[in-house]
């Protein structure tokens, strides 16, 4: 009998693990956005003094992890796991960062939902008694993602209004069994949902039903209502997907619109040329660990449901005409 399980998909942590320190690094475009003052480091260019964008992404993730560990005050050799993933094939940013960090590594992949998956799994490891300190992290890079999933940067293509911009950045958090706020109290693991969307230039529409499914399951399993949260925030649905989530939930009789927003909308200002908004692993990561974490420490928010969304497609699956499978994981962050 699973003692800490509620319903089919939700875990309630017995001794909610705490997030004792976070770090966020972003690229130059995110560094001009409205959340710029919340980030620990803003890069002046896309290369971060590295030769390739892939190396730059790996370095962001590595430095974010190191920065979070340093801020936590925990000696490096006491960090027991590095739980991380990213968007690049074979999650090379995470595993190559792990090569340099020298911390036992668990690689995970949830596309842009990786941050929530990492926080949830990290909290399970700690609450399960398998670790006292671990670091979770994820990264994405506009240039490395564009070249893997879409087109070369200098190709003169037009983007539709539903397109999103991959956030350049990395976020990391140290999770611990210490008795300290904010904490991770619940995790709802999402199912893979595919509504038959095929357009890789419209991820918000593809991923919105997965977010809806996970939010509904979370509220059911935890026996909570939207009013129990100060804020419900999805990972990277941007303007198009956020609108769909609100409408679909209203159809089910759940109104979250007065306390709902999306990381992809917060990270850029409307004046920036980013179409529907932000996306990528780093989108949910830097907004949650940079902005929301600091606002929770200040006490502006005390209960947040972070629902990070991911599109589990590959370039091969798109070319073979496959529809886009999507996922959303929810983690509840609370000041107890």
């Amino acid at each position: 009998m699973a003692l800490k399980k509620l319903g089919n998909q939700t875990v309630k942590f017995q001794n909610p693990p705490s997030i004792i320190a976070t770090a966020s690094i972003v690229g130059p475009v995110e560094g001009q956005g409205p959340l710029k003052d919340y980030f620990d480091l803003i890069l002046s260019d896309f290369n971060f003094q590295e030769k390739t964008w892939e190396k730059a992404e790996k370095r962001m993730l590595k430095e974010a992890a190191e920065m979070a560990i340093k801020k936590s005050g925990v000696p490096g050799n006491q960090i027991e796991y590095f739980v991380a993933g990213d968007l690049l094939n074979q999650i090379i940013s995470a595993s190559f960062a792990a090569r340099e960090l020298g911390i036992p590594f668990l690689g995970i992949y949830g596309a842009c939902s990786t941050m929530a998956e990492g926080l949830g799994l990290g909290a399970m490891l700690v609450d399960g008694g398998y670790a006292d300190y671990l670091v979770v992290g994820t990264s994405s890079h506009f240039c490395s993602a564009e070249r893997q999933y879409r087109f070369p940067l200098e190709l003169g293509n037009q983007r539709p209004p539903t397109a999103q911009r991959t956030v350049t950045g990395a976020g990391a958090a140290v999770i611990s069994s210490k008795n300290q706020n904010p904490r991770i109290t619940y995790m709802t693991t999402g199912k893979v949902i595919d509504m038959g969307e095929v357009n890789p230039n419209d991820m918000g529409t593809a991923m919105a039903p997965a977010a809806v499914d996970t939010i509904v399951k979370h509220l059911e399993d935890s026996n909570r209502s939207p009013e129990d949260y100060d804020l419900i925030i999805t990972g990277d649905l941007a303007s198009v997907g956020k609108d769909i989530v609100e409408r679909l939930l209203k159809e089910k009789g759940i109104d979250i619109s007065d306390r709902y927003t999306d990381c992809g909308l917060l990270i850029y200002s409307p004046q920036q040329d980013v179409h529907a908004g932000g996306s990528g692993c780093a989108c949910a990561a830097v907004v949650t660990l940079g902005y929301l974490f600091k606002e929770m420490q200040k006490g502006r928010y005390n209960r947040i449901l972070v629902v990070a969304t991911g599109a589990l497609l590959s370039t091969t699956s798109v070319q073979q005409g496959e529809t886009i499978p999507c996922i959303a994981h929810a983690v509840a962050l609370e000041n107890l």
Binding site: M195, G196, E197, D202, T205, P209, V240, I244, R247, A276
Partner: peptide, 14 residues
């Protein structure tokens, strides 16, 4: 269900 969703988003997609 998928068809209904596709019809629905077709109406509201920018």
């Amino acid at each position: 269900e998928q068809k209904e969703y596709q019809e629905f988003v077709k109406r509201i997609r920018p």
